[in-house]
Amino acid sequence: MTEVSGSFSDTVLALLPELGLPVLGGTVMLASLGVPMLPASLMVLVAGTLAAAGELPVVAAALTALCAALLGDQLGFWLGRLLGPRVAQRSDTTTKRALALLAARGPMAVFLSRWLIAPLGPAMNVVAGAGGLSWLRFSLADLAGEIVWASSYMALGASFAPFIPQIAELSSDVTTLLAALAVALAAGVMLRKHRPHGPR
């Protein structure tokens, strides 16, 4: 299953240089809705690299990622409104964690689940809608969190742009660039997990 997931993610990422902003927006929106196997963060990272290299318009790429994430989050929130109490009855671990965090932190839970604990993001959207958090409080926390997420990954991706010529010398295949970025991202995640103070 991991191989299939990795292959699908690689295919989606490889479409970014070809199709540009539509594939960026579509991937981010669907990932925000909780569709599995979509590499939204890595997609924004690569978009930042391509934008810094002049392959994508910088402002348009950043706004596409931000607006797509916000749209997916809003759809999840209103889905939660429709489902109501049934969400609280779900027994999966992610939903339980999102419920507990929302009960403890309120709108701050929404903000943190955009970037610091992003795997909880899609579940948090639904839980916030079902749990009665006001749309305005959700939306303000969501906007703030997604700005942090999109700008951070775009900036991180842009920092790789100076190394593109060196990578291109090794191979003209875009997969090499994507693999290098994936390794860098994975290394960052591992370092964050092993820091002694807190999860970030």
Rank of each mutant, 00 (worst) to 15 (best):
L133Q: 04
F8H: 06
L38E: 00
W135M: 00
R86H: 13
Q89Y: 12
L120N: 04
A155Q: 12
T64P: 05
L56Q: 02
L156T: 06
I117W: 01
A47L: 09
M29D: 01
K193L: 12
A180V: 15
A103V: 12
G188Y: 03
L177H: 15
M108P: 04
P122D: 02
V44P: 11
F77D: 05
G34I: 04
V59C: 00
V174Q: 09
V58K: 11
V87M: 12
V189N: 04
G20H: 10
P107T: 06
A155H: 13
S113A: 06
L170M: 14
G106I: 14
D173A: 11
R97S: 15
E169Y: 05
A144Y: 00
E169C: 08
V174H: 14
A98C: 12
A150N: 00
L170R: 15
G121W: 01
P17Q: 03
L66E: 05
V35C: 01
K193W: 10
L181M: 04
L112E: 06
A31K: 03
A141Y: 01
S5D: 11
G6V: 13
G26K: 03
A144N: 00
M37P: 02
D92A: 15
V126A: 05
L83T: 10
A31H: 04
D173W: 13
I147P: 06
E146W: 02
T27P: 04
T175F: 15
G157Y: 02
A186I: 15
T176W: 15
L13D: 06
G72L: 15
F111A: 08
A123G: 08
S5N: 12
V44W: 03
K96A: 15
G84M: 01
M1Y: 11
A104S: 09
R137F: 03
V12D: 07
T176S: 13
V23N: 04
N125C: 04
P22F: 14
L191H: 07
L99G: 15
L116F: 09
G34T: 05
L133M: 09
M37C: 07
G131L: 09
G76H: 14
E169Q: 12
A65N: 05
A186L: 12
L50A: 03
A168S: 11
A62L: 15
R81V: 13
A187Y: 07
A130G: 06
